[in-house]
């Protein structure tokens, strides 16, 4: 198996699914001739033609709204929002239309659109190229929210999202697009929606994290090992519906949990995960559930490195839980 980057794995998933199913289309700004600003759709325009790889006018309402209509009429559209920071103009189309089509029509119409969006910080992009909006979409009934952290998961989860019957917000950690490389299965490759991954097993504490924070968590776990603590790192991969079974089993065993995410703290997804853990694992808990997160400020440009959680800040939260 060849070693590929996460962005290449996304490209591979799109090409593989488009070759397999002629109803799969890609649409968005600069996705055609340009091949996407991050090159996620490179080569697709030449291979599959302009009818299936659609360069759209600059309008996110139009992109998502059009994708909904395409999905209602038999296509499987994958809409790209150039940065997840630009997704907000399409918020109404996503939360009131795409997410609700099945429910409000009692299953007569569905909008199984995949909306891909590069997400998160770490590229010196300032407020408008760095946000992590997952919590908005997790809060919305009817959406599946996915965020892979490895090339293999990116390919397999995107393929599953495209084949699935539910609308999916597929957030790609852009900081990892070219910084992680691994062997990815060639040809058709599926990773199931709704199943987490134990990144690293451990016995003393469960560290739950996703996206670009997964490598941060791994480094923190390594440092903890040097201090004599065994930390289990879990990447849910599908943020919603969450693989609660995996988290519950782990925390019931370790008795301690810390949640790590780069999105702001208040009403971040970590708050929901913490609530679920205390509801389900209360009698096993040896310490309060900890959170390491971005701050409740706009995403700062110059102070990005201090805003984003790092291994040191994570390790402090791990130590606090272990020493409680």
């Amino acid at each position: 198996m060849p070693e590929v980057t996460l962005i290449k794995a996304v490209n591979d998933a799109l090409a593989t699914e488009m070759a397999r199913d002629p109803s799969v289309c890609v649409l968005g700004e600069d996705v055609g001739r340009e091949g996407g600003v991050f090159r996620a759709t490179e080569g697709l325009f030449r291979r599959f033609g302009q009818e299936r790889v659609i360069d759209t006018p600059l309008n996110e309402v139009g992109i998502v709204g059009m994708a909904i209509g395409m999905a209602m009429n038999g296509l499987r559209p994958v809409a790209e929002i150039e940065f997840s920071d630009f997704i907000y103009p399409a918020f109404d189309q996503i939360v009131s239309e795409m997410a609700k089509m099945r429910y409000r029509s009692a299953g007569q119409f569905t909008a199984a659109v995949v909306v891909r969006a590069p997400s998160g910080g770490g590229i010196k992009g300032g407020h408008y190229h760095s946000q992590s909006p997952e919590a908005y979409f997790i809060h919305t009934a009817g959406l599946v929210v996915v965020m892979p952290s490895t090339p293999s998961d990116a390919k397999g989860l995107l393929a599953s999202a495209i084949r699935g019957e539910d609308p999916v917000i597929f957030l790609e950690p852009k900081a990892l697009y070219r910084t992680v490389k691994e062997e990815v299965p060639q040809g058709e490759h599926l990773v199931p929606i709704g199943k987490g991954r134990i990144v690293r097993p451990g016995d003393d504490l469960t560290l739950i994290t996703w996206g670009a924070m997964v490598p941060v968590a791994e480094k923190a776990a390594e440092s903890a090992t040097a201090e004599g603590a065994s930390v289990e790192v879990i990447d849910p991969r599908t943020l919603w519906p969450l693989d609660i079974g995996m988290i519950e089993a782990s925390v019931n065993r370790t008795g301690r949990a810390v949640i790590l995410h780069e999105a702001p703290r208040t009403c971040g997804f970590g708050a929901e995960v913490a609530a679920l853990i205390q509801e389900r694992c209360f009698l096993h808990l040896k310490s309060p559930v900890g959170r390491v997160t971005g701050f409740d400020t706009p995403f700062p440009y110059a102070l990005e490195k201090s805003y984003l959680p790092d291994p040191e800040r994570t390790l402090r939260a791990v130590r606090a839980a272990l020493e409680f």
Binding site: G62, G65, M70, A71, M72, L75
Partner: peptide, 10 residues
């Protein structure tokens, strides 16, 4: 209205 566009495109 944008949905109509998508259905027409399909």
């Amino acid at each position: 209205l944008p949905h109509a566009v998508g259905a027409a495109y399909a």
